[in-house]
Every structure is written in structure tokens, then in C-alpha cells.
């Protein structure tokens, strides 16, 4: 893990430096113009958020059923990153909406779903912060349920908002706008790598905290 950290950081930094050039050279979208370029930032942030959600759910289940402390450290790190990247998406979404549709907030299915998942994972962090001793287990349940509920949120929110036409922009991108694929791919890769890097760093931090706690306990037990 540690040996990978440095090369990955270099690659991620290079991608983040390269992406703006690609984005600047990408063609303007016909109706939205310049504002559409927020897409290269907004959608990759969602991708990182959903990666965090899945990692948190799997790690929570591993922790709850196998009792592995390292799985718990992965789960809390992933949950924090889910909230961070979700916040990026929830800030860029309304900015885009304001320019594209003229309103700050629209109950658009994907935005609504992200808001709900963000709330669930803020709840996860709340449990950890205010849950007192043993809150890791309770948080693991929230992680599992939060991940399991996401398909239901997706289906119900989508049907709830069927009045608006929904298009699957990303899968059709190679056909509709091939010039937009390279900047989008680079931005997505950069965000995913950033997510992986932050996750690695956060897990390492959690590991050191656990070691420090053990040392404190050992120190107190020795009575000095």
C-alpha cells in the first residue's frame, strides 16, 4: 500500500493538471455552452461518491460479521469520503441547475437521490461521533443499510419524478459527442484516483490512531 502511494499521487497530480487543458479544448455543448463544462467535475464527483458508498457497505458487512478492526477503519474512511465527494456534487449540481434551468434546486432524480444518500452517510458519521462506546457496530449497520437502500431510492425517486424526461447522458456520450469523451474519461479517472489516494491516507491515519490508543492503554496499565 505504502509503496503505491507516491507513484499514484504523481499520476493523479498529472491527471488533474492535464484535465483542465482537455476540458478547455473540448467543444462547447450546443445549448448550454460554457456551463456544461461543470459536467467534467460534477459527474466524476458522483462516481467517487458511489465508490465510497460501495466500499463502506462492503467493509461494514465485513466488520460486523467478521469483527475485523481494519474493515471498520476502511468503512469509516470510505463514509467520510462519501460525504466529501457528495458535497462536491451537491454544490456543483445546483450551480449547474441555476445556469442551465434558471433555478437553484430541482427535484431531479439523480440530485434527489444523492441528497438522500448524503443524509444517510452524514447520519453514519453522527452515530460514530455521538454514539458513545460501541458505536462502530451501530455505524456498520447504518453503512450496510445505507448501501442496501440505494437501489430502492434510485427506483422510487426515478418513478416519483417521471414527469421529467430523463436521458442517460454518460453511456451515450461516445455516440452523441465523441470529442467530450477524452476530457470526461481523464476527469473521471483523476477523481477515482483521488478517491483511492484519500482513502489510503485516511485508513493509514485511522490505523495510527488505533496504535496510539493501544499505546495509551498499555501506558496506563503499566501504572507509570
Amino acid at each position: 500500500m505504502k509503496t503505491l502511494f507516491l507513484p499514484l499521487s504523481v499520476v493523479t497530480a498529472a491527471l488533474f493538471a492535464w484535465a483542465p487543458l482537455l476540458i478547455a479544448n473540448a467543444p462547447f455543448e450546443s445549448t448550454m455552452g460554457l456551463i456544461q463544462k461543470i459536467f467534467y467535475f460534477h459527474v466524476p464527483a458522483w462516481m467517487a461518491m458511489y465508490s465510497g458508498l460501495v466500499v463502506c457497505g462492503v467493509a461494514s458487512a465485513l466488520y460486523l460479521f467478521r469483527g475485523r478492526p481494519e474493515a471498520d477503519r476502511v468503512a469509516v474512511s470510505a463514509a467520510e469520503l462519501t460525504v466529501v465527494f457528495g458535497l462536491v456534487g451537491l454544490v456543483t449540481g445546483p450551480l449547474w441547475a441555476r445556469k442551465a434551468w434558471g433555478i437553484w434546486w430541482e427535484w431531479e432524480p439523480r440530485l434527489t437521490m444523492a441528497l438522500l444518500l448524503e443524509l444517510i452517510f452524514v447520519g453514519y458519521l453522527m452515530v460514530r461521533k455521538y454514539g458513545g462506546p460501541g458505536s462502530e457496530k451501530l455505524a456498520a449497520a447504518v453503512g450496510i443499510f445505507g448501501t442496501a437502500v440505494s437501489p430502492f431510492v434510485y427506483v422510487s425517486v426515478n418513478i416519483w419524478r417521471t414527469i421529467h424526461p430523463k436521458t442517460s447522458v454518460v453511456p451515450e456520450l461516445p455516440r452523441t459527442a465523441p470529442e467530450m469523451v477524452p476530457p470526461f474519461a481523464v476527469s473521471s479517472l483523476a477523481f477515482i484516483l483521488l478517491f483511492v489516494l484519500m482513502l489510503m491516507a485516511r485508513i493509514e491515519l485511522a490505523r495510527r490512531q488505533a496504535t496510539l490508543d493501544e499505546l495509551y492503554l498499555a501506558h496506563e496499565d503499566s501504572g507509570s
Binding site: I120, G132, S135, V149, W160
Partner: peptide, 25 residues
């Protein structure tokens, strides 16, 4: 599971409502 937690009164709705949104919709 929240029974052991001091802040259970407020944590229960915080956790329960977002997860049961599909039910209310």
C-alpha cells in the same frame, strides 16, 4: 441497537427517515 446510546432519541429519526424514504414515496 440505539438503546445503549445516550443520544438515541435524536439519532433514531436522523437514521430512520432517510433510509425509509422509499417507503414514504
Amino acid at each position: 441497537m440505539l438503546m445503549r446510546v445516550r443520544t438515541r432519541d435524536v439519532l433514531l429519526p436522523i437514521l430512520l427517515y432517510p433510509i425509509t424514504v422509499p417507503v414514504i414515496i
